[in-house]
């Protein structure tokens, strides 16, 4: 298994399959792994707020018999005194066996991994990457659809700053016959480096559109995202764009019965609450699967998975 996880592309397709297989086994027999990481310590360093990612990592470590240290608020760390990422990592690596880190600056986990003797897992770096959310997405897709190949995936909302979207596109672009519908306002379209990656691949196709309604009937998966308020330099731009897409039951009228609706959460108002009870809404299950696949990742990166 890899030493550090910064980008989903650090993992080969075979390694992703191994993680999914391990997660399936952990789902089937939780007791089998309850001491797998005994006497190991996870450090969770969250320089930005998080609910699901941090708690799911901490729950994952505890369920594997390990211990957890860390901070959920950078104001309670020496970062407020101006300590560099490198020095923070050197310090925390003395007290832990593996570090999960979220940081507002893009590339911060790479800077951390350059100085870390223990594995670093990127839990989100600004609007850049979020590989463990992608592992949760992939595990959910595999459980819901049974495959990755040949799926039509609509990604809707903030495709510019939505780091989960960037990582998911990178991951799904490996599979044969995947079609992406990139649904966003002009100002929030996917970055060039993401589209470049798609253009160079012959196995996938993509279209960009600002109309959710026009593509919904063709979708196998609809991945909704929140407009990332914290990434805007200008509040007025956020206010203008924040309600660009609101998924309602009416929007879903022409969607397939087999559609799977995903969202990395948290949502603001881009999915109406009325959709939650629709059987196609799988975003709450998705966050549960997120904990399971993170258990598999921790065990694999610490080299204790059977």
């Amino acid at each position: 298994m890899i030493k550090h996880l910064n980008d989903i592309q650090d993992l080969s397709s075979d390694q992703i399959e191994q993680l999914i297989a391990l997660a399936e086994d952990m789902l089937a027999d939780r007791a089998k792994y309850q001491s797998a990481l005994a006497h190991r310590t996870l450090a969770t360093l969250f320089f930005e707020p998080s609910t699901r990612t941090r708690l799911s990592f901490e729950a994952a470590m505890l369920e594997l018999g390990g211990d957890v240290i860390g901070f959920a608020d950078p104001n309670s760390s020496s970062a407020t005194k101006g300590e560099s990422v490198a020095d923070t990592i050197r310090t925390v690596a003395c007290y832990s066996d593996i570090i999960v880190m979220r940081h507002p600056k893009e590339g911060a986990p790479i800077a951390a991994s350059l100085r870390s003797p223990v594995p670093i897992i990127n839990a989100g770096d600004g609007g850049h990457h979020h590989p463990t959310q992608t592992l949760a997405d992939l595990f959910t897709i595999r459980r819901e659809k049974g495959r990755f190949e040949g799926l039509t995936i609509g990604l809707c909302g903030d495709l510019k700053f939505g780091r989960t979207v960037h990582s998911l596109i990178h991951a799904m672009a490996r599979y044969e016959g995947v079609r992406f519908a990139l649904i966003s306002p002009q100002e929030l379209r996917a970055p060039d480096y993401i589209l470049e990656g798609l253009r160079t691949r012959s196995n996938v196709s993509y279209e960009e559109t600002d109309s959710l309604e026009s593509v919904v009937p063709r979708l196998d998966i609809l991945y909704m995202t929140r407009v990332q308020r914290e990434r805007f330099f200008n509040e007025a731009d956020y206010v203008r764009l924040k309600d660009s897409y609101i998924l309602t039951l009416k929007t879903l009228a022409d969607a397939k019965d087999s559609l799977t609706i995903l969202h990395p959460l948290p949502r603001v108002n881009e999915i109406a609450v009325e959709v939650d009870d629709d059987p196609r809404a799988r975003y709450f299950k998705q966050m549960y699967y997120g904990k399971i696949i993170r258990k598999a990742l921790l065990a694999a990166m610490l080299g204790v998975a059977p």
Partner: peptide, 27 residues
């Protein structure tokens, strides 16, 4: 938004992303 703008002592490294266009990207 890049970590190189705040982190001291970090090398500024770019890789060749598209040779035909001479395009480099920050690692």
């Amino acid at each position: 938004r890049c970590i190189t703008t705040t982190e001291p002592g970090l090398d500024h490294i770019f890789h060749l992303a598209d040779a035909a266009r001479g395009l480099y990207r920050c690692v």
